[in-house]
Computed example of a mutant assay.
Amino acid sequence: MDVFKGVDMAVKGNIYEEGKVTSRTYWTAEGERKTVGIMLPGSYSFSTSSNEKMEITNGGVEVQLASGGEWTGYREGGFFLVPAGVSFQIRCDGIAEYVCSYS
């Protein structure tokens, strides 16, 4: 997934954690909403309002989907699923890039 063609992209970015996590929302020709973003080293907490698939496109992250649960690592080419209405923890030691799909 190196290039997105034929998409509509929001001009305004999504900025979290004092700019340490940023993304841009775009819509595919089929109307699917996605975000493409970058995460600087750190630990973050997010919650979802819809089902989310997070694909790691560069670098690596560790994710804790359940409070007190195990941390699982994902590297470039990997992905994880987060159900709607769930909070999760994510951390990275280096810069990580990602694409999120929502349903």
Score class of each variant (00 low, 15 high):
50 S>I: 15
33 R>D: 05
44 Y>K: 12
11 V>Q: 09
12 K>S: 05
62 E>D: 13
34 K>Y: 01
53 K>G: 04
59 G>P: 09
34 K>P: 01
19 G>R: 05
48 T>M: 08
13 G>H: 00
35 T>W: 00
63 V>M: 08
11 V>H: 07
37 G>V: 14
52 E>Y: 00
19 G>V: 04
43 S>P: 00
27 W>G: 01
5 K>I: 10
27 W>H: 11
13 G>A: 05
34 K>S: 01
25 T>H: 03
46 F>Q: 13
20 K>S: 10
50 S>D: 12
11 V>A: 09
11 V>S: 07
46 F>E: 12
46 F>V: 14
55 E>H: 13
33 R>Y: 04
9 M>W: 03
24 R>P: 00
43 S>R: 12
6 G>C: 06
6 G>Q: 14
6 G>N: 15
32 E>H: 02
58 N>R: 15
6 G>P: 01
39 M>S: 13
53 K>W: 14
19 G>E: 06
9 M>V: 13
42 G>Y: 03
27 W>V: 11
14 N>S: 07
47 S>T: 13
20 K>Y: 03
38 I>W: 05
8 D>Q: 13
31 G>M: 08
8 D>S: 12
19 G>L: 04
57 T>G: 06
59 G>Y: 09
58 N>V: 07
57 T>P: 06
36 V>D: 01
26 Y>T: 06
12 K>I: 03
45 S>P: 01
61 V>C: 14
51 N>F: 08
8 D>I: 10
25 T>S: 12
26 Y>Q: 05
56 I>V: 14
24 R>T: 01
12 K>P: 02
23 S>A: 08
58 N>P: 02
21 V>K: 12
15 I>Y: 12
59 G>A: 09
62 E>L: 06
49 S>C: 05
56 I>N: 10
58 N>M: 11
8 D>H: 10
33 R>W: 05
30 E>K: 01
15 I>L: 14
25 T>R: 01
7 V>H: 08
5 K>A: 09
13 G>Q: 02
16 Y>D: 05
48 T>I: 03
6 G>E: 15
49 S>D: 14
52 E>R: 00
10 A>E: 07
30 E>M: 02
5 K>T: 15
48 T>K: 06
29 A>V: 13
46 F>M: 11
46 F>P: 11
49 S>A: 10
23 S>N: 06
18 E>Q: 13
18 E>D: 14
23 S>I: 04
32 E>W: 00
35 T>I: 01
21 V>H: 11
28 T>G: 04
15 I>N: 11
58 N>W: 03
47 S>N: 09
10 A>K: 08
12 K>Y: 02
6 G>H: 07
19 G>K: 02
26 Y>K: 04
27 W>N: 07
45 S>G: 14
9 M>R: 11
57 T>S: 10
6 G>K: 09
26 Y>C: 04
53 K>N: 08
42 G>C: 06
